[in-house]
């Protein structure tokens, strides 16, 4: 314990008490919810809560056989992947322009892009709904992809811009005198050099897409276009009430991959979450 650095007057017991309490507060509901996923429905809502239930795989069978869970999963993955791809294709050139060139209106354009992140989904929900209805895109994952891409475009652009700004100007000058054109510099020099930033941006975008709820609810009104998130909200099973054990399992199925990816980019997380404003 000799290696623990502390300031004079700081009490280590209090430090660990505070941190452990919050840790428990974070984990207890999660663990309890996990136990819901592996108990029979009869033991979920009872007169007295049951803390040590009997083990049951009912919910596991249910989500795969009674519901098209594989389809929801596929929809989720396709929508996430597609939207992140759209974002990268649009954001990388935009970020390159915003970080490497001096021109009139640059700051305003950058700020406009940022400000779209500030727009509440509810504000644009109705027009977007009508737009996609008129385009015949309601209840398709294409519509989801387009909306998700729009939601995250600002974040992705700003994160990538922040990483690009860190690349020394000399590198670009060297490539230019070596005979590379602007697009060649972007593709062969800048993009490889900021790959961690691009991955970070993609992961942050993924987190926000998974969190998106309102648009998905409006655009995907039939199971054909359900993603995991909205499918969950619709697991109310009509007269059966809320089927909590299935919900719990699906929630964990969606959680695990996200968790692993986020741990992998831990170092870049703070920079990503603040759109590059805070360098971790």
């Amino acid at each position: 314990m000799a290696s623990i650095r502390r300031v004079k007057g700081e009490n280590l017991y209090i430090r660990y008490l505070i941190l452990s309490c919050w840790g428990l507060f974070c984990l207890m509901p999660v663990l309890w919810f996990l136990s819901i996923g592996f108990r029979p429905r009869t033991e979920i809502i009872t007169a007295q809560p049951i803390y040590f239930p009997t083990l049951s795989l009912d919910a596991w069978h249910m989500i795969w056989s009674d519901w098209p869970m594989a389809k929801y999963l596929r929809n989720s993955v396709a929508a996430i992947f597609g939207s992140v791809m759209i974002d990268l294709v649009l954001a990388i050139p935009a970020a390159y322009s915003l970080s490497r060139y001096e021109y009139r209106g640059r700051e305003d354009i950058g700020f406009y892009i940022l400000s779209t992140r500030m727009m509440a989904p509810a504000i644009v929900a109705i027009p977007i709904f009508f737009l996609f209805r008129n385009l015949g895109l309601l209840d398709t994952i294409w519509a989801l992809m387009l909306v998700y891409a729009a939601i995250n475009l600002s974040i992705v652009t700003w994160i990538i811009r922040s990483y690009m700004t860190d690349i020394p100007r000399e590198l670009e000058d060297a490539a230019r005198t070596d005979g590379a054109g602007d697009l060649r510099i972007l593709w062969e020099i800048i993009i490889p050099a900021i790959l961690p930033g691009i991955i970070t941006a993609a992961v942050i975008a993924m987190i926000f897409v998974i969190n998106e709820f309102l648009f998905t609810l409006l655009i995907a009104s039939t199971p054909d276009a359900y993603t995991m998130s909205v499918a969950l909200a619709n697991f109310t099973g009509g007269s059966d009430g809320v089927i909590y054990n299935a919900i719990a399992l699906v929630a964990f199925l969606a959680f695990v991959p996200v968790f692993l990816v986020v741990i992998a980019i831990q170092k870049h997380l703070s920079r990503g979450l603040t759109m590059g404003a805070v360098k971790g």
Binding site: G23, P29, F33, F213, I247, F255, V258, F259, V262
Partner: peptide, 17 residues
């Protein structure tokens, strides 16, 4: 990592919890 766990659940899942 521990503190991150709640943030990485879908909001609908958190709401149900």
């Amino acid at each position: 990592i521990i503190f991150l766990v709640p943030m990485l659940f879908m909001p609908s899942a958190v709401a149900f919890i």
